[in-house]
Nucleic acid binder design. Structure first.
Lengths: 397, 397
DNA sequence: CGGCTTATTTCAGGACTTGATTTAACTCGG
DNA sequence: CCGAGTTAAATCAAGTCCTGAAATAAGCCG
């Protein structure tokens, strides 16, 4: 019902230029002719736009493929050295800053620990700025060639004129995070929820390539999701869509979730809940073990049929599969991508079982056209995905 | 990741023209100047496009509002008589065909019963064609001014080059429904699932006006939904998104649903299931009563505190509210619109209770920004919504 | 080396949008 | 009843952009 905003003949050029850039960025080096075919633009226009892009240094010619009799095609590609993008992963225990060139090859990385008790926005902001300085120094890249900085935060991001962040994990409420960072840098800043940036990374460079309808389900300590429909993420009216963890899977009862409700998916499938259920059922984990090693151990123990661990994990698989089945029914995605550290741990061992449960909990037709896969990009993907924010901005012109 | 398809300077005009048409169609009559303001296009362009539209008879001038000293503005509006659209509602027991002018005022209507045992696609197609002839005759409108025919079918619609329909209720499997109708008419044909057309009607003309993120939940004998994100419906990869009814709300148990699984939302909330549960719990309904009157009676009986009916309906409200809560968490819509004949029956009496349960089953923030309302348009909306399909095509040019 | 083939570039033409400038259509005060 | 004042719409002269056709470039092959 809303209408795309266009208007002048100049916007047209910007759009065509952007279309060509996208096409060139994703996909092998191509000749002008092939680009013309791929985008539907006339060869003349492709030629014009490409001259522009080459003059600006954004696109470069890389070799030419000789045909059998005829002028050889000149292959073009986006110049990976034209500019650089920075991705920031704000985690619970550390801030990670990574610098990539345009081909998303990592050029520098910096980690700064966060005191778990001091999550003040100023502290986090100063860590990010320090990280930024560190990667710039390490890579020797001048700030002027940085196209932008993307920041993935553990909370919801309100894209108001000046970005405001709410974070339950950090106890942030309407924090003007953009302003805080703005004081320390003049670079373009972009923000999104960490789960979303991870989803975007997976969508662009991982298991979600060439997919336009997908759900990336992230199972860590809690459970989140990033829903992509028509190649763009669904954010909802206040940017908090994707709260898969608090879907009710046991209505009118069930375990109490940390959100206060009962019967949430997260109360069964989140790593925290899994370990808790294991302990309640009489299992034990080594003293002082963190969640990650506890879960790994649990999965190891579950190899023994009939063990407590096996029972707990079977149940976990049941709930997770049911949740995925629900997503399939509701959204009919082409692909479900399971990620997050706990998701990968579980998926490595139980993916077939999860698929089977999902099948049982979804309709035949949508299930048969959905593939359920694991993330390909590990947890570092948050920073990579954050870096796609400025990349996207760049590709759109 | 995909890029809008644009290209030539002519597409630009088409887009601007379309933008102006949309703006003019939704909203009061406006002057060129106001349109320029509203769309961001220059007054000159608005003038040009409007001349075109007026010449073609699509837009007409309606009065002019005099200002205090100065040339009066000429108010423009879309000419409701420029063309007509037809909406077809293919229900389980009848085919309804309605003809509207561009202001969506009904001009003619025809109902043809369907033998519940004979749902062959040829039969349905012939009924539609008969209905088409009937509304044309009744209204006296010549076929050439019909902009198109939208058909809402009870099943999933594959928008392949030639539309193919699967319908569980009719036992259709890959029926080339478009081809069947095409044999009887030369008019443009457009198809969609009936729940979607209803959702679209509600979104354009009902409770969803000026909303771009909404879910229309339809409770009838079964339960479906139409999800709107960013002003456009989510269809999923094979156009079967929105199957809310088969979301698991009782994992690892629960009632058996007609889909074969257990614990589906529909097994608790669909009218069929409600009545069934009532009977199982010892309630009785008059012999030979249809679902609709049975449910109405049940709701009436539930006024007696502690009655079986009250208990069943409380439970129904619980599951429905939980399902809605899940939608809120997952999609963070601005509005949830409850419809369908059973949904309206329930909602009339229980909306506050449903809202309360939804609140309990969703996170605080997304819930607080969502309103849960009833459909405004009754069940006839299916045909109205179907008619919006050609209307949309028309507005897009 | 010259004919042949295919990729790019150049060019003239046509379509658009736009800011500035006119023209149109009223109001109001004297 | 006229003319100044005011606001809306139309017209105009640039300036952009895309496109098909024609020209040019850059190789192959015999």
């Amino acid at each position: 019902m809303a209408e795309r905003k266009r208007g002048t003949v100049r916007d047209l050029r910007r759009d065509n230029r952007s279309m060509l850039l996208w096409s060139l960025y994703f996909g092998d080096p191509r000749s002008r002719q092939e680009l013309s075919l791929a985008t539907g633009l006339s060869p003349a226009s492709v030629s014009n736009v490409m001259r522009e892009l080459i003059d600006e240094g954004i696109v470069i010619e890389v070799g030419n493929v000789d045909s059998d009799g005829g002028r050889p095609r000149v292959l073009l590609r986006v110049n990976p050295e034209y500019g650089y993008v920075v991705g920031v992963d704000v985690g619970e225990t550390r801030v990670r800053v990574e610098l990539f060139d345009l081909s998303m090859t990592e050029r520098a990385k910096a980690d700064f620990p966060l005191d778990p008790l001091r999550h003040g926005a100023e502290v986090v902001a100063s860590r990010i700025l320090a990280g930024l300085a560190a990667v710039l120094a390490e890579s020797g890249i001048e700030p002027r060639s940085i196209l932008g900085v993307g920041v993935g935060v553990p909370g919801t991001v309100q894209q108001t004129p000046e970005v405001v962040v709410d974070s339950q994990t950090f106890g942030w409420d309407m924090v003007p995070f953009e302003r805080l960072l703005r004081e320390g840098t003049g670079l373009p800043l972009l923000f999104d929820n960490g789960a979303n940036t991870m989803g975007q990374a997976e969508l662009w460079f991982g298991s979600g390539r060439d997919t336009s309808n997908a759900v990336v389900a992230l199972v860590g300590s809690g459970v989140g999701a990033s829903i992509i429909s028509n190649s763009s993420p669904i954010r909802g009216s206040t940017a908090s869509a994707g709260e898969l963890g608090h879907l009710s899977v046991v209505v009118g009862g069930g375990r109490t979730c940390r959100c206060g409700n009962r019967g949430c998916l997260e109360a069964y499938v989140g790593a925290e809940a899994i370990v808790e259920r294991f302990l309640e059922a009489g299992g034990t984990v080594p003293e002082g073990a963190d969640q990650e090693s506890a879960l790994a151990l649990l999965i190891y123990e579950a190899e023994i049929p009939g063990s407590v661990a096996a029972r707990i994990l079977d149940e976990t698989v049941l709930y997770l599969g049911a949740g995925i089945g629900g997503l399939i029914n509701l959204l009919n995605p082409e692909r479900i991508i399971l990620g997050g550290w706990a998701g990968l741990l579980l998926g490595d061992r139980y993916l077939p079982a999860i698929q089977e449960v999902a099948r049982q909990h979804s309709l035949k037709h949508p299930f048969s056209t959905t593939s359920i896969e694991l993330c390909r990009l590990g947890p570092e993907a948050v920073a990579l995905g954050a870096a796609t924010l400025p990349l996207e901005r760049f590709l759109n012109g």
